[in-house]
Simulated assay, not measured.
Amino acid sequence: MLAWTVALASFLGAMFFSEVMDLEPCVLCWYQRIAMFPLVLILGIGAYGQDRSCLRYALPLAAAGWLLAGYHWLLYKGVIPKDLQPCGKGASCADVKLEIAGFITIPLLSLTAFSLILLLLVAAHRKFQQ
């Protein structure tokens, strides 16, 4: 249920940034959304039905999203050169669009959300293995 809450908050945050604040998502943001949005349904259905098998579907999505978010954050921070960004048209993946408190960025929020979801899913998996 906690992993679903994080996924739902991430979904709502992404919608707020793009629809209310009118921030255009970059290519990496779209890929991360592709990994995050189904987690809202998968984890919600799994939590409602007390179905452990949802972990089998949620873990790979969360892991893929975490890798994308990590790459995006490193690109955003300048650790990965801007030449290696997958963005060609539209918004740049390396541009600073929003910064809260001087260091909290959209890629950092995404990386944090995927990290929390992964930790919670691994903990749930271990609990069910006992």
Rank of each mutant, 00 (worst) to 15 (best):
A64T: 13
I104G: 01
M1R: 12
F128Q: 11
L61H: 15
L39R: 00
L98M: 12
K82W: 10
M21R: 05
K89L: 08
G65D: 12
A3D: 11
V79I: 11
A94T: 15
G78Y: 03
G102Y: 02
Q32A: 07
V27C: 08
R33T: 05
P38Y: 05
I100W: 10
R56Y: 13
K77G: 01
I80P: 02
R33E: 04
I34E: 01
L109T: 02
Y76H: 13
R56W: 14
L59K: 00
A64M: 15
A3T: 07
F16T: 10
P25G: 05
Y31I: 00
Y71A: 06
S53Q: 11
G49F: 04
I100N: 06
L118I: 12
L55W: 12
E24I: 04
L74E: 08
H72V: 00
G88N: 15
T112S: 15
P86E: 11
S18K: 07
L98K: 02
A9T: 04
Y31N: 08
I100H: 03
S110A: 09
Q32D: 03
P38D: 09
K89Q: 08
I42P: 06
K127Q: 06
F11G: 02
F128A: 14
P86S: 10
S115N: 07
V6A: 10
E19P: 00
A7F: 11
D83Q: 12
L8A: 15
L111F: 14
V40T: 04
G13W: 14
A123E: 03
G46R: 02
K89M: 10
L23W: 11
L75D: 01
F17N: 05
V96Q: 12
A7L: 09
S53M: 07
L119S: 09
I104V: 13
I104Q: 01
A9S: 13
I100Y: 07
P86C: 03
R52I: 04
W73M: 01
